[in-house]
């Protein structure tokens, strides 16, 4: 009994509640589907999870501070198209193939800055402001790409994000590093502490003399840059930039953050929970395809998972807090 309690405590302290579910699904799928434990499937799965996780890591910090960004999916699209245009216009001749990375991230930062100005300086509700930029930026994607898929990336650029290091896909490495940095910032740094404070009681931080506006502005720029990075990873993995690239990614990201146990009301967040949430979401989507179930069920199942997580989360998952 005592050791059981200990194990339960360990799981709570480290936000590992989703781990048993993940293991269960993985074991079941290994038995049910021959193509599950193949390297090709694992790479597909890893790519999908990674791109979501890059965004969701940033979204964890943002939601912990009681912010939200609905424009990240569109930013993914614009960053991908931006990188494609970089090569199309031959800018790599002057700035090299890796300049596209800087360009894509800068595009994301610029959109983040616009969001930050709208939310932090003008004071619009984040939900409304980023809904506006979500549509406007998607429009920009259509305009700049003329609605067509653009190819022609430099192989060296593609290699950065879709190669392997020690047999691990680069996308996984990028996402893993992003999540590590996000966890470090949230739990170990001044910024993370203040983001939790901001989500808990903005008025308290303001009256105490904390530069609340600058903190908020910074968090949206950070979110934009990560969405830009996710866009580059996506473009490299497809070797193409589609005008619809990144659609719905904002909802996937928010979904895994909530499933992981971060409180939508702010003040409490867990990157570990988000990592597990992203893995579980990717796993379930992959399983549905492998089992030959209609893809239409995927959206339905994801919706159910979010609802279950929120209901279960009231005492169990959201009760978990960052140390």
């Amino acid at each position: 009994m005592n050791s059981q309690n200990k194990a339960f405590g360990f799981i709570q302290d480290h936000h590992l509640q989703l781990l048993p579910v993940i293991l269960l699904v993985a074991v079941a799928m290994t038995i049910l589907s021959e193509s599950f434990m193949t390297s090709q499937n694992m790479i597909n799965l890893a790519n999908r999870v990674s791109i979501n996780l890059i965004i969701a890591s940033g979204m964890t910090l943002l939601i912990t501070s009681e912010g939200i960004d609905l424009s990240v999916g569109s930013t993914v699209g614009l960053s991908a198209v931006g990188a494609a245009i970089y090569f199309q216009n031959g800018w790599d001749a002057s700035f090299g193939p890796y300049g596209a990375i800087v360009f894509g991230v800068a595009v994301g930062a610029a959109i983040g800055l616009v969001n930050g100005i709208l939310v932090a300086l003008i004071g619009l509700p984040a939900f409304i402001a980023t809904l506006g930029t979500m549509l406007a930026v998607r429009g920009l994607v259509f305009i700049t790409s003329s609605g067509r898929t653009i190819m022609g990336f430099d192989p060296r650029f593609i290699e950065v994000f879709s190669g392997f290091t020690f047999g691990i896909p680069r996308a996984v490495i990028v996402a893993g590093l992003t999540a590590l940095v996000a966890a470090y910032v949230l739990n170990k740094t001044t910024t993370g502490r203040l983001l939790q404070g901001l989500g808990g009681n903005e008025r308290c931080l303001y009256t105490a003399g904390i530069r609340v506006k600058r903190l908020k502005l910074g968090s949206y720029v950070m979110m934009g840059m990560l969405a830009g990075l996710a866009g580059l990873t996506l473009a490299a993995s497809m070797s193409a930039a589609e005008p619809f690239a990144g659609s719905w990614y904002e909802l996937d990201a928010i979904a895994v953050v909530v499933m992981g146990g971060t409180a939508l009301t702010g003040g409490r967040g867990t990157v570990m929970g988000t990592v597990l949430g992203a893995i579980l979401l990717g796993l379930v989507a992959n399983s549905i395809i492998l089992l030959g179930i209609s893809a239409y069920y995927q959206t339905f199942v994801v919706g159910l998972m979010i609802l279950v997580a929120i209901v279960m989360g009231s005492p169990v998952l959201t009760g978990a807090r960052a140390n």
């Binding site: 502490r193 203040l194 939790q196 404070g197 989500g199 808990g200 009681n201 008025r203 308290c204 931080l205 009256t207 105490a208 003399g209 904390i210 702010g266 003040g267 409490r268 807090r321």
Partner: peptide, 17 residues
């Protein structure tokens, strides 16, 4: 409403500024 971040620990509230 103004003095504390209720979700943070007492220690974190003390050292906020």
């Amino acid at each position: 409403a103004e003095g504390l971040v209720l979700e943070l620990t007492a220690l974190a509230n003390m050292t906020l500024t």
